[in-house]
């Protein structure tokens, strides 16, 4: 059941986002072609202004697309949940014989997949832009080695733990957004406006709670960090990175679970379709 829900959510979210991926790729390719054409050619010498302006335009468009891909993906993720669960389509979605929590989880998973996918597509497009020849892989290897030396952690471990942290961070952000919209639909007017207000409110509340936790643990943290001062730079850096990532992941996991549970409760008992 969950798999089927995810399939339909993914389809709906990816629909127009893929178009932006393609545009990004085309822009990337155009920049590369222009680069080949103009670099070291007589054309560049004859029309310096024209080539500069043209190249600048393409680059601006490219970075605009990078921003657009990520923003538009987020927009489609939020829109999918709002439209499919809380608007007219909700008359179907909320009457299929399935627990509401599965609908929320499937939206979370589909959103996270596409958001991470968009991030990776952007990363690959930028990498593609940098690629002149196989030497780019050497420079990447150098970065990896340098990282290892300075921080004392394999870059693969770093990417791995960053990946998990990003996933949990995305899950928690989306679960907060879903909760905000679910609270917003409780009122009969200005639903979107209330949703945004609830979102801000939830965010403030979470920050406040985190601050309280931080203050109550401040003495323990002081002791912990003090103990690390004695260690070498490498080991200390590794520990700090792991510590931050694990703490952030746990907090995000808790936020996700709490928000999802609350949203599920609202959808089961307080649904207010127009």
């Amino acid at each position: 059941m969950l798999g089927k829900l995810i399939k339909y959510d993914l389809r709906d979210i990816l629909k127009n986002v893929v178009v932006l991926y393609v545009i990004g790729l085309l822009l990337s390719i155009s920049i590369k072609i222009c680069d080949r054409l103009f670099f070291n050619s007589s054309f560049r010498e004859s029309f310096p202004t024209l080539t500069t302006v043209f190249t600048a335009t393409l680059f601006t468009a490219f970075f605009f697309i990078i921003a657009a891909i990520n923003l538009y993906t987020l927009f489609r993720c939020v829109r999918r949940f709002y439209r499919n669960v809380l608007c007219q389509e909700g008359y179907l979605t909320n009457t299929i014989p399935i627990k509401k929590v599965f609908i929320i989880i499937s939206n979370l998973i589909a959103s996270t997949i596409v958001l991470m996918l968009s991030l990776m597509v952007c990363f690959l497009l930028i990498l593609f832009l940098q690629y002149h020849d196989y030497t780019v892989f050497d420079s990447l290897k150098n970065i990896a080695n340098g990282f290892n030396k300075e921080i004392g952690m394999s870059i693969y471990n770093f990417i791995g733990i960053m990946f998990i942290t990003s996933i949990l961070s995305t899950l928690s952000s989306m679960s907060i957004i879903y909760l905000a919209f679910s609270l917003g639909q409780l009122s009969n007017h200005n639903r979107v406006l209330f949703s945004i207000l609830y979102g801000i409110l939830i965010y403030i509340v979470i920050q406040f709670i985190l601050l309280l936790i931080l203050l109550s643990f401040s003495s323990h943290l002081d002791t912990l960090f003090a103990s690390w001062e004695a260690l070498s730079d490498q080991v200390a850096s590794t520990r700090i990175i792991y510590f931050m990532c694990i703490v952030s992941s746990i907090i995000n996991a808790i936020i996700t679970i709490v928000c999802t549970a609350l949203t599920s409760r609202i959808l089961e008992r307080k649904l207010n379709l127009e």
């Binding site: 709906d12 439209r83 007219q88 389509e89 008359y91 179907l92 009457t95």
Partner: peptide, 19 residues
């Protein structure tokens, strides 16, 4: 959930994703 399995409901609006 069990009652939803045996009820087929036609609401008074467009409840399908037109895309």
């Amino acid at each position: 959930i069990k009652s939803k399995e045996i009820i087929s409901y036609l609401p008074d609006c467009n409840f399908l994703n037109e895309e």
